[in-house]
Deep mutational scan, measured.
Amino acid sequence: SDEEKKVRDQAKRLGVNTEQLLKWARRQGDEDLVRIVERLLRS
């Protein structure tokens, strides 16, 4: 999905993997991002 591509691009920009991005999203309190990243991790 578009959202998932955006998440992957953001992880690349930050230089982190998906698990690290999830931690980062939780720290930001970004519920939408957390949900998308969790979906990516499960897929």
Results as ranks from 00 to 15, higher is better:
Ser1Gln: 10
Ser1Trp: 10
Ser1Asp: 12
Ser1Tyr: 10
Ser1Glu: 11
Ser1His: 08
Ser1Pro: 08
Asp2Cys: 15
Asp2His: 10
Asp2Glu: 11
Asp2Met: 09
Asp2Phe: 10
Asp2Arg: 07
Glu3Ser: 10
Glu3Gln: 11
Glu3Pro: 11
Glu3His: 10
Glu3Ala: 13
Glu4Lys: 06
Glu4Asn: 07
Glu4Asp: 07
Glu4Ala: 10
Lys5Arg: 09
Lys5Pro: 03
Lys5Thr: 06
Lys5Tyr: 05
Lys5Gln: 10
Lys5Phe: 08
Lys5Ser: 08
Lys6Cys: 15
Lys6Leu: 13
Lys6Ala: 07
Lys6Pro: 04
Lys6Phe: 13
Lys6Gln: 10
Val7Trp: 09
Val7His: 04
Val7Pro: 04
Val7Tyr: 06
Val7Thr: 03
Val7Lys: 03
Val7Ala: 06
Arg8Thr: 06
Arg8Ser: 05
Arg8Leu: 14
Arg8Val: 09
Arg8Met: 12
Arg8Cys: 13
Arg8Ile: 12
Arg8Pro: 05
Asp9His: 04
Asp9Tyr: 08
Gln10Arg: 08
Gln10Leu: 15
Gln10Trp: 15
Gln10Ile: 15
Gln10Gly: 04
Gln10Met: 15
Gln10Glu: 11
Ala11Trp: 13
Ala11Val: 10
Ala11Asn: 04
Ala11Lys: 05
Ala11Glu: 09
Ala11Phe: 11
Ala11His: 05
Ala11Thr: 03
Ala11Tyr: 08
Lys12His: 06
Lys12Ala: 08
Lys12Trp: 09
Lys12Ile: 09
Lys12Asp: 08
Lys12Tyr: 06
Arg13Val: 10
Arg13Gln: 05
Arg13Pro: 03
Arg13Ala: 08
Arg13Tyr: 08
Arg13Trp: 11
Leu14Tyr: 05
Leu14Ser: 03
Leu14Asn: 03
Leu14Asp: 03
Leu14Ile: 03
Leu14His: 05
Leu14Phe: 06
Leu14Arg: 03
Leu14Val: 04
Gly15Glu: 03
Gly15Asp: 02
Gly15Cys: 03
Gly15Asn: 06
Gly15Leu: 09
Gly15His: 07
Gly15Pro: 03
Gly15Trp: 09
Gly15Met: 04
Val16Thr: 04
Val16His: 10
Val16Pro: 02
Asn17Ala: 10
Asn17Met: 07
Asn17Phe: 13
Thr18Pro: 12
Thr18Ile: 15
Thr18Tyr: 15
Thr18Gln: 06
Thr18Trp: 15
Thr18Ser: 09
Glu19Asn: 08
Glu19Tyr: 13
Glu19Phe: 11
Glu19Arg: 13
Gln20Asp: 11
Gln20Glu: 13
Gln20Gly: 09
Gln20Thr: 06
Gln20His: 04
Gln20Lys: 09
Gln20Met: 07
Leu21Trp: 04
Leu21Lys: 00
Leu21Asp: 00
Leu22Met: 03
Leu22Gln: 01
Leu22Gly: 00
Leu22Glu: 01
Leu22Thr: 00
Leu22Asn: 00
Lys23Glu: 15
Lys23Asn: 11
Lys23Ala: 14
Lys23Asp: 15
Lys23Trp: 13
Lys23Gly: 04
Lys23Val: 13
Lys23Tyr: 12
Lys23Phe: 08
Lys23Ser: 13
Trp24Ala: 02
Trp24Cys: 14
Trp24Gln: 01
Trp24Phe: 02
Trp24Thr: 02
Trp24Val: 02
Trp24Lys: 02
Trp24Ile: 06
Trp24Glu: 02
Ala25Glu: 00
Ala25Tyr: 04
Ala25His: 01
Ala25Gly: 00
Ala25Lys: 01
Ala25Ile: 12
Ala25Arg: 00
Arg26Glu: 13
Arg26Asp: 02
Arg26Ile: 14
Arg26Ser: 06
Arg26Pro: 01
Arg27Val: 13
Arg27Ala: 15
Arg27Gly: 14
Arg27Ile: 14
Arg27Met: 15
Arg27Trp: 14
Arg27Asp: 15
Gln28Val: 09
Gln28Glu: 07
Gln28Pro: 01
Gln28Thr: 11
Gln28Met: 13
Gly29Phe: 13
Gly29Met: 06
Gly29Gln: 06
Gly29Arg: 05
Gly29Lys: 04
Gly29Tyr: 13
Asp30Ala: 11
Asp30Asn: 13
Asp30Gln: 07
Asp30Leu: 15
Asp30Gly: 13
Asp30Lys: 07
Asp30Glu: 05
Asp30Val: 11
Glu31Phe: 11
Glu31His: 10
Glu31Val: 13
Glu31Cys: 15
Glu31Asn: 10
Glu31Thr: 09
Asp32Met: 11
Asp32Ser: 08
Asp32Arg: 13
Asp32Tyr: 13
Asp32Ile: 14
Asp32Cys: 15
Asp32Asn: 13
Leu33Asp: 00
Leu33Glu: 00
Leu33Phe: 05
Leu33Cys: 02
Leu33Ser: 00
Leu33Ala: 00
Leu33Pro: 00
Val34Gln: 02
Val34Asn: 01
Val34Ser: 01
Val34Lys: 02
Val34Gly: 01
Val34Arg: 02
Val34Trp: 06
Val34Met: 06
Arg35Ile: 06
Arg35Val: 05
Arg35Gln: 07
Arg35Cys: 02
Arg35His: 03
Arg35Glu: 12
Arg35Asp: 03
Arg35Tyr: 03
Arg35Ser: 06
Ile36Pro: 00
Ile36Thr: 03
Ile36His: 03
Val37Asp: 00
Val37Thr: 01
Val37Pro: 00
Glu38Arg: 03
Glu38Trp: 06
Glu38Thr: 06
Glu38Ala: 02
Glu38Leu: 14
Glu38Gly: 02
Glu38Pro: 00
Arg39Lys: 12
Arg39Tyr: 08
Arg39Trp: 11
Leu40Ser: 01
Leu40Phe: 12
Leu40Glu: 01
Leu40Ala: 02
Leu40Asp: 00
Leu40Gly: 00
Leu40Arg: 01
Leu41Gly: 01
Leu41Asn: 01
Leu41Val: 04
Leu41Phe: 03
Leu41Pro: 00
Leu41Asp: 00
Arg42Asp: 08
Arg42Phe: 11
Arg42Val: 09
Arg42Thr: 09
Arg42Asn: 09
Arg42Cys: 14
Arg42Ser: 12
Arg42Pro: 01
Ser43Gln: 13
Ser43Ile: 13
Ser43Met: 14
Ser43Lys: 11
